[in-house]
Computed example of a mutant assay.
Amino acid sequence: MASATTFYDFKPKDKKGNEKPMTDYKGKVVLVVNTASKCGFTPQYAGLEKLYKDVTAKHPEDFVILGFPCNQFGGQEPGSDDDIQSFCQLNYGVTFPIMGKTDVNGDHADPLFEWMKAEKPGLMGMKRVKWNFEKFLIGRDGKVKGRWASTTKPESIEKNILEEIERKE
């Protein structure tokens, strides 16, 4: 999708395998995270859920987290979409949307991830996602505002999210 200019130009697959238009989130600040159930960073689900609850308590209509399960890093997301949904709810009480299993790198990478990586390359201009739980912050204008590595704890970017929410376009 070379013509894509904003987050809202994409329709990745939801947990049922249907296209989910990102225009559904227009006007919100969105944190996109590639996730996995069997990773050393998996406990970040708890931090993401707390972040989601804390921010939406203050700004109920302005923020969403979208989890994109990915099995490209050490086979750490082997389950089906239904398995993943159950895991997230049972183990971490996740209430934010978990999308369908997604490739974030390579020939079959979802166009949304291709676009985000091009908009906000990682360390030293690296375009690929390095590991599970990498995070991309999308502003209300549909542009990538920030990118953080897997090692960045969700709570440490709350300030960035709130600043983006409070920014008047």
Rank of each mutant, 00 (worst) to 15 (best):
M1Y: 07
M1N: 10
A2W: 06
A2E: 15
A2S: 15
S3A: 13
S3K: 11
T5K: 07
F7L: 12
Y8M: 11
D9T: 06
D9M: 03
F10L: 14
K11R: 12
K11L: 12
K13D: 11
D14N: 15
D14I: 14
G17M: 11
E19P: 14
K20E: 07
K20F: 03
M22L: 15
M22I: 11
T23R: 07
T23E: 13
D24G: 10
K26D: 10
K26T: 09
K26A: 13
G27Q: 01
K28I: 06
K28H: 06
V30E: 03
V30N: 01
N34W: 05
N34Q: 03
T35D: 04
S37I: 11
S37K: 09
C39Y: 07
F41A: 12
F41K: 06
P43W: 07
Q44C: 02
Q44E: 05
Y45N: 08
Y45A: 10
Y45M: 07
L48S: 03
L48M: 05
E49V: 13
Y52I: 01
K53Q: 14
D54V: 00
D54R: 00
D54Y: 00
V55I: 05
T56N: 09
A57N: 10
H59E: 09
D62F: 01
V64D: 02
V64H: 00
I65E: 04
L66T: 08
G67Q: 11
C70A: 14
N71Y: 12
G74H: 05
G75Y: 01
Q76H: 15
P78T: 00
D81I: 05
D81V: 08
D82F: 10
Q89C: 05
G93Q: 03
V94Y: 05
P97L: 07
I98Q: 08
M99F: 15
G100L: 00
T102W: 06
N105S: 04
N105A: 02
H108F: 12
H108K: 15
H108S: 12
A109G: 03
A109T: 05
D110W: 07
D110I: 10
L112K: 03
L112Y: 04
L112R: 02
F113A: 06
E114Y: 00
W115P: 07
W115I: 11
K117T: 13
K117G: 04
K117S: 04
A118W: 04
E119L: 00
E119H: 01
E119G: 00
E119Y: 01
K120T: 12
G122N: 10
L123Y: 09
M124A: 09
M124W: 07
M126G: 04
M126C: 01
R128D: 15
R128T: 15
K130Y: 01
K135A: 08
F136W: 13
G139T: 06
R140T: 13
D141W: 03
V144R: 02
V144F: 04
R147D: 01
R147W: 04
T152H: 09
P154Y: 07
P154I: 07
S156E: 15
N160H: 14
N160V: 09
N160A: 15
I161N: 08
I161T: 09
L162E: 15
I165F: 13
I165Y: 14
R167L: 14
R167Y: 10
E169R: 06
E169S: 10
